[in-house]
Amino acid sequence: MSWFQRKAKGINTPTELKREAPDGLWHQCSECKQVMHTREHKNNAYTCLHCNYHDKIGSEAYFKILFDEGEYQELDSEMRSADPLEFVDTKAYPERIVTTEKKSGLKDAVRTAHGNMHGKKITISCMDFGFIGGSMGSVVGEKIARGMDHALKTKTPFLMISKSGGARMMEAGYSLMQMAKTSAKIAQLDEAKVPYISLMTDPTTGGVTASFAMLGDFNISEPGALIGFAGPRIIKETIGKDLPKGFQTAEFVQDHGFLDFIVDRKDLKDKLASLLNMIKK
C-alpha cells in the first residue's frame, strides 16, 4: 500500500485541446504544430508561415484584410432571424438564436459591407461559421440579396465569401427558397454586367454550394478548403466505401473543373483587385 493516494483524477487533457494555446504572443499552427509570433500569423492573413495552413476566420477578419485601411460601411447590421415556423427541436429556435448571439457576438451567419479595395469600390458579403454552422436562413438570403442590390445600384463588383454547412433547418421551406432568391439576384447581376466573385472557404457545402457559391463569374477558393454538395459522411454512408484522399478539397474541385483558381489568402486582395481591374469597362 502506498503512502499517498490521489483523490481526484489525474490531469488528463485530451491531445486536441493541448494545442489550443491561450491568446497571447505565440500561435501554434493547428496543422503542422509549428509555433510563430501571433502578430506574424495575423500579418500573414491568418495563414501558417511554415505550412500555409489557412486558419478559419470570420467576417471581421476578412473585412479587415480586404478593405483599404480595414474601413468599411456595414449594411443591414441589425437584421435578425424571426421564427416563422415556431420551430422546436430539442430547443426552441429563438432560444438557439439568443444563445448563439451571446456566444458569437454576431446577429446572424452573414455580414455585408461596402468599402474600397485598392481604391476601387466593392461590396462584400461574408459568412460566419460561428453562427449555427454558417447556416442559411431568411436573414442570410436577404442580406446577400440586398448586398447584391447594392452592387447593382452602384454598378460595383460583388464578392461573396461562403463558409457554411448549408441551409438552416429551423426555417425549413423559407431557408430552401433563399437558394432561389440569391440565384435570382445573380441573374440580375449577369444582366447588368456586374462582376460577381464567389470565394468558397472551408467549409462550403449543401444548399450554399448548390446556389450562389457555384454561380460566380469567378468561382475561387483558398487552399485545402472543403467544398461539396453532400457532406463527406453522407457520401461515405451512401457508397459504403472510404473516400479517396483529398476528395472534396479545393484542389480536387479545381481538378474537376468547378473552380477557376485557388488563391492564398495573403494574396487575395491584390489578385482580386488586379483581376477586376482587367475586366472593368
Binding site: I186, A210, M214, I235, F247, F258
Partner: peptide, 23 residues
C-alpha cells in the same frame, strides 16, 4: 449524394438550373 455526383459538380448543376430557370 454519391462520389461521382460530386466529381461532376452536383452543386453547380443545381445552382445553374435555379439561376437559368429564373430567366
Amino acid at each position: 449524394p454519391g462520389l461521382e455526383a460530386e466529381e461532376r459538380g452536383q452543386g453547380e448543376a443545381i445552382a445553374r438550373n435555379i439561376k437559368e430557370m429564373m430567366t
